[in-house]
């Protein structure tokens, strides 16, 4: 595992996303509510470019009829093709299934954005 500088930090403003290619892989990098996220641009369901999808926030409840909240601290990415939804940090599906997306550790340092590959 090695840290790779991908681009200058100011190229990725708040709410933005950029793509970085390495070999055959394309990685989507997001700055969302002050935090950075990175995921492989490949949905495990049908191979869609998942990082082109909508960044959302999962809804949860305390059960049917219970109060409903939207969790802004754990953004998700919704695939643009079939709307499968994955946690941008952990890569886990919001549904109880085993398939997940590949996510990467990402940080900002010295005016650059770095990904752990």
């Amino acid at each position: 595992m090695a840290w790779q500088s991908v681009f200058a930090a100011d190229e990725l403003p708040e709410g933005g996303r950029k793509f970085y290619s390495i070999g055959k892989r394309e990685i989507g990098i997001f700055r969302h509510r002050g935090k950075l996220y990175a995921a492989l641009n490949y949905c495990p369901h049908a191979g869609a470019p998942i990082c082109m999808g909508e960044v959302d926030h999962p809804i949860s409840t305390k059960g049917p009829g219970g109060s409903t909240i939207r969790d802004f601290d754990h953004p998700t990415i919704r695939c643009p093709w079939h709307h499968w939804e994955f946690d941008l940090q952990t890569g886990k599906s919001l549904c109880p299934i085993s398939r997940r997306i590949k996510t990467y550790t990402v940080r900002e340092e010295d005016g650059h954005i770095w990904i752990s590959l």
Partner: peptide
């Protein structure tokens, strides 16, 4: 459900 889970978030 995989696509539209947000409309039934109470399903575990």
């Amino acid at each position: 459900f995989k696509a539209l889970r947000q409309q039934a978030p109470f399903l575990k």
